[in-house]
């Protein structure tokens, strides 16, 4: 299950469509870290709205992804964590420390605009 990655202005948007295997998650991480360079992206949004479980592997992979893209000069924001998923994550002891999150795609774009000062870079 490949995750489609869209380019919007100077941002990359990865919209997860359904449950992902561990390999799918690693593939997404590698693809985004590569595409940040190819498209000279200033920001990355990962929409996890359809994910009904965020376990320790998913969190670790997304955390690694955010840190890797930051090392490449691009800010990552994770959007769409569902309320019950947030509840289970906290109970499990998982945090996304050091990683930006936003409620949804719209808020994620606004956040990146404020961080990268690129509001004029997209329609």
């Amino acid at each position: 299950m490949q995750v489609p990655i869209l380019k919007q202005g100077s941002y990359l948007i990865a919209s997860i469509q359904s449950s992902l295997t561990d390999s799918d998650l690693c593939q997404l991480r590698d693809a985004l870290v590569g595409q940040v360079g190819r498209f000279r992206a200033r920001g990355v949004i990962i929409d996890v709205t359809p994910l009904d479980v965020m376990d320790s592997f998913a969190v670790r992979t997304l955390r690694d992804l955010a840190h890797m893209t930051r090392l490449r000069g691009s800010e990552t924001v994770i959007v769409g964590i569902q309320p019950e998923v947030a509840f289970a994550m906290v109970q499990l002891g998982l945090t996304l420390r050091g990683i930006s999150t936003a409620l949804d795609l719209e808020e994620g774009l606004a956040f990146l605009d404020s961080r990268t000062d690129e509001a004029h870079g997209r329609d």
Partner: peptide
């Protein structure tokens, strides 16, 4: 909420 908690533990 509990369905999600169970699914996460199972994972």
């Amino acid at each position: 909420g509990d369905q999600t908690v169970i699914a996460t533990a199972v994972s």
